[in-house]
C-alpha cells in the first residue's frame, strides 16, 4: 500500500489517510454539511443523493451530535459531539467489500494480524423513512464501521442501490492508536511543537454542551422552532416548480431538506431534555419522517436526481 506505510500517529492522520484513500478510489471528497446533524447519513450528499438514477461517489467527515450521549467529557468513549467518516457510492460497486478492507489497511490495520468480520446488522432510520441491509464490521471483536446497501430512502426504493460506509472515527482511531480514553487521544502529531490531545479540543465543549443539552436548552423555544421548521419545510415545497422570477423549473428540495434536518436535531435536543414521553416520541419521529419523505419526493423530480429536464418554457 503505497499511500500509507506504517501506523498513523494521530486522530487527524487517520482522517487524512481515509480521505486520501477514498479520493484515490475515485470519490469526491466533500466537506461536512454546515448544519447540526445526528449522523453522517443526514448530509444531503447521502440522503438525497442516494435517490434517483445518477451515479454518485462521495466521501466526507461529518461532525455529528447526539445530545443524549453527553457525559460531560468523563466517559472514555461517549460524546455528544463526535465525527463520522462517510462514504456513499451509487451504484454500489461489486468490489465494495474489498475497497472497504483496503481503507482499513490504509489507516494501519494489518490484515494478517487482525480478525475482521462482517456481522449482520440491518440499518433502519425511522426519521428518514430509510432502511438497508448490511453488517457492522468487527475488528478483533470491536465494531469499527457500518456497511449498508441502501434499499429505501424517504419512502423511495433506491434504484440503483447505493453502498454506504460509516466509520465511527473516535472509536476506530482509539483502537488503531491504542488509546483507552478518548480525551487522551493525540489529535495532531504528538511530536508537534504544540501537541494537542482530543481532550484539549473537546473536553470543554463536552462539558458545556452536556449541561446545556440536559438542563438548560429552553424547551419552549425548541418546541416552537420544531413547529416552525416543520411548517417552513412544507411551505417551501408548496411553491410551484416554476420560478415566477426566472421562469425556470426550480424545485427547492435542498432548502426544504435543511428544515427537515433542523427539525430532526431539535427533536434530539427535546429528547435529551426529557420532555418527550415514549408515545409522543413516536409521533415526533413520524413528523420528521413525513418531512423527509416530502423532500425525497421533491428531490426525485430534479435534474440532480436524474429526472428528465423539463422542456424550456
Amino acid at each position: 500500500m503505497s499511500e500509507a506505510p506504517g501506523k498513523p500517529r494521530s486522530f487527524q492522520e487517520i482522517i487524512l489517510r481515509l480521505q486520501t484513500y477514498w479520493a484515490s478510489r475515485g470519490c469526491a471528497v466533500l466537506q461536512p454539511y454546515d448544519m447540526e446533524v445526528g449522523a453522517g447519513t443526514f448530509h444531503p450528499a447521502t440522503t438525497l443523493r442516494s435517490l434517483g438514477a445518477r451515479p454518485w461517489a462521495a466521501a466526507y467527515v461529518q461532525p455529528s451530535r447526539r445530545p443524549t450521549d453527553g457525559r460531560y467529557g468523563d466517559n472514555p468513549n461517549r460524546l455528544q459531539h463526535y465525527y463520522q467518516f462517510q462514504v456513499l457510492i451509487k451504484p454500489s460497486p461489486p468490489d465494495l467489500q474489498a475497497l472497504y478492507l483496503g481503507s482499513l489497511e490504509a489507516i494501519g490495520i494489518d490484515m494478517s494480524l487482525h480478525d475482521i468480520r462482517f456481522v449482520e446488522d440491518d440499518w433502519e432510520s425511522p426519521t428518514l423513512g430509510a432502511w438497508g441491509l448490511g453488517w457492522e464490521v468487527w475488528c478483533d471483536g470491536m465494531e469499527v464501521s457500518q456497511f449498508t446497501y441502501f434499499q429505501q430512502v424517504g419512502g423511495h426504493d433506491c434504484r440503483p442501490v447505493s453502498g454506504e460506509l460509516t466509520y465511527g472515527l473516535e472509536r476506530l482511531a482509539m483502537y488503531v492508536l491504542g488509546i483507552d480514553h478518548v480525551m487522551d487521544m493525540p489529535f495532531n502529531d504528538p511530536q508537534a511543537p504544540i501537541a494537542l490531545k482530543y481532550g484539549d479540543i473537546f473536553r470543554q465543549t463536552e462539558r458545556e454542551y452536556s449541561r446545556f443539552n440536559f438542563d438548560v436548552a429552553d424547551t419552549g423555544v425548541l418546541l416552537r422552532h420544531f413547529e416552525e421548521a416543520e411548517a417552513e419545510c412544507a411551505a417551501i415545497l408548496a411553491h410551484p416548480a416554476t420560478d415566477p422570477k426566472t421562469g425556470r423549473e426550480i424545485v427547492m428540495a435542498h432548502p426544504a431538506y435543511d428544515q427537515c434536518i433542523k427539525a430532526s436535531h431539535i427533536f434530539n435536543l427535546l429528547d435529551a431534555r426529557g420532555v418527550i414521553s415514549p408515545t409522543e416520541r413516536q409521533a415526533y419521529i413520524g413528523r420528521v419522517r413525513t418531512l423527509a419523505r416530502m423532500c425525497a419526493d421533491a428531490f426525485t423530480t430534479t435534474e440532480a436526481a436524474g429526472a428528465e429536464a423539463a422542456p424550456a418554457a
Binding site: 472514555p76 468513549n77 494478517s112 494480524l113 487482525h114 480478525d115 475482521i116 468480520r117 475488528c139 478483533d140 471483536g141 470491536m142 483502537y175 483507552d180
Partner: peptide, 28 residues
Amino acid sequence: VTVANRETADDGATILAGNGRVLAARLS
C-alpha cells in the same frame, strides 16, 4: 472464549488482546 476467523503469525495474540480491550470497556 472467542472464536477468530483466521490463524495469525502471532498465534492470535493481537486478536486476543484486542478482544480483551473491547471486553474491558464493555464490562467497565
